[in-house]
């Protein structure tokens, strides 16, 4: 119950009921052999509305043409690569915290989305994807006729 409240969905429709499963899918990561990223890259924030979901991801140092976004039914996949920094000769590294390599992350969304209407913008290293709910997946209001 607490979880339902925290994520803001009432029991009437509860797309997050399999939340733990979604989380494990979120953490699915295809790492290349020398990848230094921790699982779960990129970090994401997810904002929901009944008819739309916004996923934002921090992807500093990844140019827009190195990000691949794909949508299938109710899953969103963000794939890409961050190039390693160039290390010119004669340069000594004192500290190296920034990783590089390939990443892929799949999220399960609370509903199926209209793939053709998905919009993505990328600004200052933050990717924001807006995914409208599929028409067929929207709750229908049923008119009740009096006798």
């Amino acid at each position: 119950m607490l979880r339902t409240q925290r994520f803001g969905f009432g029991p009437a429709w509860s797309p997050w009921r399999d939340f733990s499963r979604m989380q494990s899918e979120m953490d699915r990561l295809f790492q290349s052999a020398n990848d230094s990223y921790a699982p779960g890259f990129p970090p994401v924030n997810v904002y929901t509305r009944e008819d739309q979901v916004i996923v934002s991801a921090e992807l500093p140092g990844v140019p827009a043409d190195k990000v691949d976004i794909s949508v299938l039914d109710d899953t969103l996949t963000i794939k890409g690569a961050r190039a390693a920094e160039e290390r010119p000769e004669g340069v000594t590294m004192h500290r190296e915290e920034r990783g590089s390599g390939e990443f892929a992350r799949t999220l399960r969304l609370p509903f199926r989305v209209e793939a053709s209407s998905v919009d993505a913008k990328f600004e200052n290293g933050v990717l924001e994807i807006t995914l409208p709910r599929a028409e067929a997946d929207r709750p229908k209001r049923i008119a009740v006729h009096g006798a």
Partner: peptide, 10 residues
């Protein structure tokens, strides 16, 4: 505005 934060990692 009008959205609920469902998941926050950053």
């Amino acid at each position: 505005e009008g959205y609920r934060t469902a998941f926050r990692q950053f």
